[in-house]
């Protein structure tokens, strides 16, 4: 990642929160945790109102026009926010932002705008650690957490050490790796409903791996993967609590976990 070779930016850094549609609807706490962490790290956070969805369902289904339509609205929203960076609590969604230039491979003007946004977009933990050099986490959570590396974050953005480096600052928490950390959880956006039986095979293997770690909490950096794994763990009767890593880092680990009632 060549951006990290540039020296750390001078505060205040202006950052746009890209909330991601799943966090927006299913897990607002992830958004608040992200805002809190960015502010703790000295950023000025703005939330562009014009954002909806990055167009990943369209792009991954071969619908280039649909993906372009949604990406144009997003690009405009982030441009108008006049920020230094765009940050999302998701490797998958930032991976999509990084694909926007390809989405506009037949449209030079938009491709240029897409590239400008893509170049300043970061996954949250990687932004904190690689870009800001910030790891002063002020959080406490008693227990053992298994960490799941989401595929796009890990392979496309190189996110693996950063969340662990940050979690090392959470007092009382031990972090364990899965035995098959490279394995996809089977979410895959629309894949999990298009190919429900394959997806459920995959998430079953993942759930067994999680349970075998002996952890009481599962953490990851993508709400999609988390919903998937949480759903399978619950169906298997596991009491493991499932949270986005940002919640724990922002010391919000005492809220009801994903899928828990009040």
């Amino acid at each position: 990642m060549d951006q990290s070779e540039i020296s750390a930016p001078r505060p205040p850094v202006r950052v746009a929160l890209f909330i991601t549609c799943l966090a927006d609807m299913f897990r607002p706490a992830v958004g608040f945790a992200t805002v809190a962490l960015l502010e703790q790290a000295g950023c000025e956070v703005v939330v562009p109102q014009g954002q909806t969805c990055c167009g990943q369902p369209q792009w991954n289904s071969g619908d280039r026009r649909g993906a372009q339509k949604l990406a144009r609205a997003m690009i405009t929203a982030f441009e108008q926010a006049e920020v230094d960076y765009v940050v999302a609590p998701s490797g998958s969604c930032i991976g999509m932002v990084k694909d926007w230039p390809q989405v506009f491979s037949d449209d030079a003007a938009w491709q240029q705008r897409a590239t400008a946004i893509a170049e300043k977009s970061w996954e949250l933990t990687s932004f904190l650690v690689d870009r800001l050099g910030w790891t002063q986490v002020q959080a406490h959570l008693e227990g053992i957490a298994a960490y799941h590396d989401s595929c796009t974050g890990k392979r496309k953005l190189g996110v693996a050490a950063q969340p662990r480096a940050l979690l090392a600052g959470v007092a009382g928490l031990e972090v364990r790796d899965l035995s098959a950390p490279e394995e996809c959880c089977g979410f895959g956006g629309t894949f999990c409903v298009k190919y429900g039986d394959i997806s459920s095979r995959m998430v079953t293997d993942k759930a067994k791996d999680i349970i075998a770690t002996g952890a009481d909490t599962l953490l990851a950096g993508d709400v999609g993967c988390l919903l998937n794994m949480q759903g399978r763990l619950r169906r298997l009767g596991s009491p493991i609590k499932v949270r986005h890593v940002a919640e724990v880092l922002a010391n919000m680990g005492d809220q009801p976990a994903i899928g828990e009632g009040e």
């Binding site: 607002p28 998430v203 919903l227 169906r235 899928g259």
Partner: peptide, 18 residues
């Protein structure tokens, strides 16, 4: 296709982040 093998978490708080 989802709920055959998984439960589905309800949205937290019942309100969106935005």
């Amino acid at each position: 296709d989802w709920t055959d093998s998984r439960t589905m978490a309800a949205p937290q708080y019942g309100r969106t982040f935005m």
